[in-house]
């Protein structure tokens, strides 16, 4: 097993900044031999994590993409950190389409999508520091 590959980014305050993180995922994922479709799922999840951080955080949003090479067992790990007020994960409601269709608020899918698209999602949040850790194995679901 060789050393992990790391890319660290501070997202600029520009339109579609989240796509910079997606590009880093693409670059490292290809080096690890991830399938295109798997990488696109990771990119969707990373875009959601970045959007949440850009929207709810304050100050800079940091993204670290780490490729852990290990043949078929290779892993992509993405850490998205913001310095906003934080949130209580237990209070984030699970979205239901029927309710969304008839309600005023159609948003609120980000965390749910991340959980289904990635193999693992961990969130650490307290005032001034929120970090979302996303993990996908090369042969993951």
């Amino acid at each position: 097993m060789t050393e992990p590959t790391r890319v660290r980014l501070v997202l600029p305050q520009v339109a579609d900044a989240e796509l910079l993180a997606a590009r880093a995922v693409q670059e490292i994922g290809v080096r690890l031999g991830f399938a295109r479709d798997t990488l696109e799922e990771v990119k969707l999840a990373v875009v959601e994590a970045c959007l949440n951080a850009l929207e709810h955080g304050s100050g800079k949003v940091e993204v670290e993409v780490v490729g852990h090479p290990n043949g078929e067992g290779s892993r992509l790990e993405v850490l998205v950190t913001d310095h906003g007020p934080g949130f209580d994960l237990d209070k984030v409601p699970v979205p239901y389409l029927e309710a969304k269709l008839h309600g005023n608020r159609k948003r609120g899918w980000g965390l749910e999508l991340m959980r289904h698209l990635m193999d693992r999602v961990d969130v650490v949040s307290e005032p001034g520091f929120t970090q979302v850790r996303l993990l996908k194995r090369r042969g993951g679901q």
Binding site: K43, V47, L51, K100, R107, W109
Partner: peptide, 20 residues
């Protein structure tokens, strides 16, 4: 289209609601 975000999705839901 290869990528979409949840804000774009929420706007598609508005189209769906209107259509229905």
């Amino acid at each position: 289209t290869r990528i979409i975000n949840s804000i774009g999705i929420s706007l598609l839901l508005e189209v769906l609601e209107r259509t229905l």
